[in-house]
Design a protein around this nucleic acid. Structure first.
Lengths: 337, 337
DNA sequence: TTGTAAGCGTTATCAG
DNA sequence: CTGATAACGCTTACAA
């Protein structure tokens, strides 16, 4: 049993207790509920903690109390800075509460996500925020069985695991397409990444809008491209080669749209006269290029804030009322359309 | 003691043991060292795990074994996608080992970092990777006292906490400045963010290079700007107003450089003829703008990979030899200079 | 190869 | 307000 190797740390609560001349429980209380301990003893405890360099063992605390102070966040990728705002929203809520946020990256596929979720559940996190919208049945079962409070962020799923805070990818995509139609564009092409559930919703929204304005929801108007700036170039190349009369390009992501814009520049295509460009997700970059790109502004920060709030409410079992929050979106019209 | 609220999960190892008709130890072994259990029993255990939806409790495991399977990573910000590669490097090493990476964001100041480090130590992580280079004395004491293996990433500090895997900000900055001088630029301005230790090292490198080419290390040649694209605009505005004969701008970050390039575009300044632009950190964006921006390519992925490797070696107490790894950098010459 | 007993460092409970 | 004791769920050490 002696911890000869591995996790060291050595100083235990009992050491602090001895040093301060009190029982372990008094130390525990001084640390967790300072007001419940007489000022004098409390001070002795704090001094002992300081002198010994004691660091509370949350492992033991969680095990014993059946409560964790960590919230897990699963993100599909860190390459995309769009999540930075969501993280900030979560942190701002969590900071004053004593909860800590730990994130893990997981590719956008249910199997790998299951590994990550499983690791978080194994650590018995107090709650989980998931960006992915497609989950393995095993992951869902695990989450439900463990009663881990969960908030999903990436879309408004039909059958949520637990709580949802998001916007509708389909509605946003549809709204932008209608916006383009209203501006007079009639040959709109949609460029998106290879299939993931949110990308598909965005496609559906695009097609729905076409139908609504009396056009055939033609799959030919959808181009599937690679990730990154190069994806935008691919979209333009496709248009140049196969759909030359296209008058507007709607990209399912900022980076794609900027890549497309750069490529138009190189080709001498005037934006928006030869081709209008619109994008999904209003990151800083799209308003700094020229022309600025018309974009969908999504409530990234707010999603983080509300997610954390709901999680804390559920954990503290105050309200369990709210299950689904649709935070909407906004169209930012710029010079590119 | 009953877990009436909070962490639920209910299914314990003993439940699995009963169901499989074996002792808890056999379950434990089947889970952790499958080969040490007879195939038949092992299968019974796995079946029971499956049927009951059991998820291993790593809290209890770590507490009991004094070993953790999580590695913590502290990043100054997620806004900057430069860290995505480092995270990938770490993940690639960790994935096959059963270790899990958990990241936390911490602003670039020692006090807030201390909170985050403290949380990780409280969770008794198996190892820690820190990007910040400036740490509070308390944080260092805590890390040393807990014997947590630590790798620092952001620079090559004089007095490392434990291990270091990085490049030299000063050397990189100096090399790029000398590169510009070699190309014939003689009125070089350096634009950087408000002070953090790495930013200061970059300034020093710039000034050292100036001295080396026989120029006065003049603080007037250093502009302090805001974060983001707007910082690049500020740099150009400063040059236009106060240092109009500047022939090259060296930005201590990509986004700054791109912001500067965009602003030159708007002003009708030809790059590199009116003004050459170079940047720190070779992200995707800088080679997609036109002209492509000359940049310092830093070994982000490799830093992650080596950091994780060193950490695992230290944890497994194989080699404790390597303490400091300088991974260098590379200058990528493009059309902007 | 499997089982038994003790303990990891904390907190819940209840008595004082 | 403080302390003794028994868990929390797992693994180490040792015995069979």
């Amino acid at each position: 049993m002696p911890a000869t190797k591995g996790l060291a740390s050595s100083v235990r609560m009992r050491d602090v207790a001895e040093r301060a001349g009190v029982s372990r429980m008094t130390v525990s209380r001084a640390l967790n509920k300072p007001d419940s301990v007489k000022p004098e003893l409390r001070q002795r405890v704090f001094d002992a903690v300081e002198e010994l360099g004691y660091v509370h063992n949350h492992l033991a605390r969680s095990l014993s109390s059946s409560r964790s102070n960590v919230i897990g966040l699963v993100l599909p990728s860190l390459e995309n800075s769009i999540f930075a705002q969501t993280v900030k929203g979560i942190s701002d809520v969590l900071r004053p509460t004593g909860y800590h946020l730990m994130l893990a990256e997981s590719p956008d596929n249910a199997e790998e996500e299951e590994q990550v979720i499983s690791a978080f559940v194994a650590q018995r996190v107090g709650g989980l925020i998931l960006h992915g919208t497609e989950h393995s049945p095993a992951a869902v079962r695990m989450l439900r069985a463990s009663h881990t409070p969960v908030v999903e962020n990436g879309d408004l799923p039909k059958d949520p695991i637990d709580m949802v805070v998001s916007y509708s990818n389909r509605a946003a995509s549809k709204a932008m397409t209608l916006h383009l139609a209203r501006l007079g564009y009639s040959k709109i092409v949609f460029a998106g990444l290879a299939s993931n559930p949110r990308a598909e919703e965005r496609q559906k929204g695009f097609l729905e809008a076409l139908k609504e304005v009396g056009q055939s929801p033609d799959m030919q108007k959808i181009v599937r491209v690679s990730r990154g700036f190069v994806g935008g170039e691919e979209a333009i190349a496709h248009i140049a080669a196969h759909l030359p009369d296209t008058d507007a390009l709607f990209c399912a992501g900022d980076v794609l749209a900027v890549g497309a814009l750069f490529d138009c520049d190189r080709r001498g295509w005037a934006v928006p006269d030869r081709l209008a460009i619109a994008s999904f997700d209003d990151v800083d970059l799209v308003r700094h290029v020229s022309p600025g790109i018309t974009s969908l502004r999504l409530p990234r920060y707010e999603i983080g804030r509300r997610s954390a709030e709901l999680l804390l409410q559920r954990i503290n079992a105050k309200k369990s009322s709210v299950k689904k929050v649709d935070l909407g979106f906004e169209i930012v019209q710029r010079a590119s359309t």
